[in-house]
Design a binder for these strands. Sequence first.
DNA 1: CCATCTTTGTGCACGCGTTCACAAAGACAT
DNA 2: ATGTCTTTGTGAACGCGTGCACAAAGATGG
Lengths: 256, 256
Amino acid sequence: MATGRTHRPATRSRGIPEATVARLPLYLRALTALSERSVPTVSSEELAAAAGVNSAKLRKDFSYLGSYGTRGVGYDVEYLVYQISRELGLTQDWPVVIVGIGNLGAALANYGGFASRGFRVAALIDADPSMAGKPVAGIPVQHTDELEKIIQDDGVSIGVIATPAGAAQQVCDRLVAAGVTSILNFAPTVLNVPEGVDVRKVDLSIELQILAFHEQRKAGEEAVADAGAVPPAVARKQQPSIDQGPDGDVPAVMPA
Amino acid sequence: MATGRTHRPATRSRGIPEATVARLPLYLRALTALSERSVPTVSSEELAAAAGVNSAKLRKDFSYLGSYGTRGVGYDVEYLVYQISRELGLTQDWPVVIVGIGNLGAALANYGGFASRGFRVAALIDADPSMAGKPVAGIPVQHTDELEKIIQDDGVSIGVIATPAGAAQQVCDRLVAAGVTSILNFAPTVLNVPEGVDVRKVDLSIELQILAFHEQRKAGEEAVADAGAVPPAVARKQQPSIDQGPDGDVPAVMPA
DNA sequence: CCATCTTTGTGCACGCGTTCACAAAGACAT
DNA sequence: ATGTCTTTGTGAACGCGTGCACAAAGATGG
Ligand SMILES: NC(=O)c1ccc[n+]([C@@H]2O[C@H](COP(=O)([O-])OP(=O)(O)OC[C@H]3O[C@@H](n4cnc5c(N)ncnc54)[C@H](O)[C@@H]3O)[C@@H](O)[C@H]2O)c1
Ligand SMILES: NC(=O)c1ccc[n+]([C@@H]2O[C@H](COP(=O)([O-])OP(=O)(O)OC[C@H]3O[C@@H](n4cnc5c(N)ncnc54)[C@H](O)[C@@H]3O)[C@@H](O)[C@H]2O)c1
């Protein structure tokens, strides 16, 4: 997973568990595909398969929204698309600003799937004066000086940060001060925000590292299967004084 | 959060909880910053603040790796950097292929933080013949025909998919067949993979929808505070026959 | 060598999320 | 109208993750 909520710990928002909220977009995508194929109804089993989840989980998720299914038949696709869209707040228009129009920011601006679901790129903002006025994805880049004005004039409440890590917190502070209350952060930094502001992060580097961990573990298991070396050593306890890098690997640095 | 593991349900890999693994890169980043500032030791409280987590959680996380701290002092920064790096498998080189060199793929290829932690872009692959040979981020793009050969020759086990959604499953199947066992998917699709292959996804659209949900809820709470209208209706039960869009909103479609 | 002070490592309790399994609901045929 | 068959909605059990709170460990000073 590339994200994690930062604030609002476990405040079951309006009775819908956070884990369920995170899956609703997944269901919505699968339902939209069915809708485009004019499929009228779908069972929890079928939809769960399409969304890659357990069918019981899907039914429980839907039960938080209300009783929208028909026993013996399944769920009405169009109706469910509407209900989930409404629940997620996609029936209204969400203006979004993207700050930092470099490689990533430009890619995001060009991303088609952005506009498809109620999200509209209200402005592209960059600190580089030489970029000002230059159109990216058909939208002229504006200078950071305009940030506050843009946000207030357009009533922007969602901001995307795609600046270098060093600038992220500062940009975040300005966004929040100007009225933004939801931030999607692509910079590899922990953002500090006041209560009431939601931050989600997308971090490529972290994702790769998690994959590497599992990849290493897979390789390790094979090695263990080959030769019977290196006992798993779960919950290993430290030796009294002598401490040599736990798994027989040579540590580069020793503790003080 | 933008991701979620797909396979390998909750198999506490080698005793380290998945939630802990997901935080290790965060700690590593904070520790690396301390290391660059030549800070010798750090307490769980300080490091937790830098990583944006609870200090008890951090200590528990580290306890899964072993007893690497010194009571009354804290943790040795360099030693911990090494231990976490080793645990995550970052002491070795991970060749990575990126498939689909469009807007996003090109941005990823240009991403500096990629190479910084043991990850090396082994190849850029695209189906568009007109892109073949064209250098992106200094690496010539290769045609999809070469995919299997590249993966086998370089021993690539991690693949990044940045193709359009329609091509993602097909690309995934080819990657897996050629030997890739970890996939980072940027395309908005659920990928089906055989047992033993890890998939993580990064989905901008899902992140925005989750933010929109919370944003709507915040707005709704304010509205409720203004006028005492619309009771929260937690766990609402369906009316027998008449069903009008639960929150007084007009449904576009009614169930069959 | 002892006292004090800091900070780790973890036992414990609690709550969230997942999954099983099944009763109840409704469609549909006869 | 009644019976059968399908599928929902959910009660209950379980396991994981989180955070509190504290004992034990060790540093440091006298
Ligand atoms: N490119 C990727 O694939 C990728 C992947 C993961 C994470 N990231 C992260 O995303 C961020 C952007 O990456 P990139 O490759 O697009 O970098 P980039 O250098 O190409 O672009 C950064 C842009 O931000 C602008 N900028 C700098 N400071 C600013 C400020 N204070 N206010 C507004 N704009 C400012 C710069 O002018 C530049 O245009 C970085 O933090 C990077 O670590 C990038
Ligand atoms: N651009 C973004 O910010 C963004 C954000 C989120 C998700 N995404 C997703 O990432 C993917 C890529 O987005 P993009 O904006 O770069 O699209 P794009 O159209 O610019 O690039 C797609 C590239 O994939 C190549 N391609 C197509 N089929 C292929 C195949 N079978 N094998 C190899 N290469 C193939 C195309 O030639 C093209 O170069 C899409 O699925 C998109 O939904 C993009």
